[in-house]
Design a binder for these strands. Structure first.
Ligand SMILES: [Zn+2]
Ligand SMILES: [Zn+2]
Ligand SMILES: [Zn+2]
Ligand SMILES: [Zn+2]
Lengths: 140, 140
DNA sequence: TATAAGCTTAGAGCTAACTCTAAGGTCAAT
DNA sequence: ATTGACCTTAGAGTTAGCTCTAAGCTTATA
């Protein structure tokens, strides 16, 4: 039986975060001491590790809630439900990537155009480009 | 002289957002009517467009505040200051991209491994992979 | 037994960039 | 003069995921 700080150490999450996850309904200590201290079993540890792996994959805590309810009763859920959640997340990630790529490209162009030197910015091509609205092309 | 809703229409930002930008110190109506209505000049419009272009490039409102103070007094600032801000932002964007790319790769692997079918999830390889902590390899 | 470390809870605070509400004033048109 | 659309302000609410605080117990060690 692990106390919360032991679990924190084993998972790399803070005790605060673990209590927060409990408040969110994601995890729960299997046992409590008479004084109310949380005690975690190996099964609890595995559940937390599942949550952590899902976080690394990019799932939101809400997504993870769904994945966890599938996990505890796999018989009542299908592979399709799991892929639906995963696919949806992939689409979100792809959308954000596209946004960031556009920023990246813009920033690289800006940097390539500016001398970056110590003289004053009256002629700065970055400022000019921003003044020109990034030379059209940006719908949205 | 444009009223706030005219400026909103011209820039594609909401009047709420424009007032918010003013509260943040980014923009300001050059004039006010006797009743207190904001009136914007062409110069104000260009400033808002600068802000919008900078937002599109990924700059935060704080960054934009700095860029704007360079913009109004280019003689007292150098190209280097501008590139510093831009470079810093590019590094942030690159960091986020790396994070997202890792998620993307993970999600794609997960999707490739799962049948996605209607049968129950007792054998689901996505669930298994998450249970296995995404097969090690994820430092952090 | 005293001290320190760690546990409990409810709830506030943080970040970023909006987004919206309430309560009221203004303006053009009917 | 009365709609209705628009304007003003201060300030609260939203989102996600923590992060921290306060006030008070509990437990282990010296
Ligand atoms: Zn230069
Ligand atoms: Zn320059
Ligand atoms: Zn399957
Ligand atoms: Zn599956």
């Amino acid at each position: 039986m692990l106390e919360i700080s032991d679990l924190a150490q084993q998972t790399g999450l803070s005790a605060h975060t673990l209590r927060y996850y409990e408040k969110r309904g994601l995890i729960k200590a299997s046992n409590r001491s008479e004084a109310g201290y949380r005690f975690y079993t190996d099964s609890d540890v595995r559940r937390v590790q599942f949550v952590k792996a899902a976080r690394n994959a990019g799932f939101s805590l809400n997504d993870i809630g769904q994945l966890l309810s599938i996990r505890v009763d796999k018989h009542s859920h299908s592979c399709q439900e799991v892929t639906d959640i995963t696919q949806k997340k992939l689409l979100e990630v792809n959308a954000k990537m596209a946004e960031l790529q556009s920023m990246q490209q813009t920033l690289e162009l800006l940097l390539a155009s500016c001398c970056g030197g110590p003289e004053n910015a009256t002629h700065c091509s970055i400022m000019e480009a921003l003044d020109a609205g990034l030379s059209r092309e940006n719908e949205n």
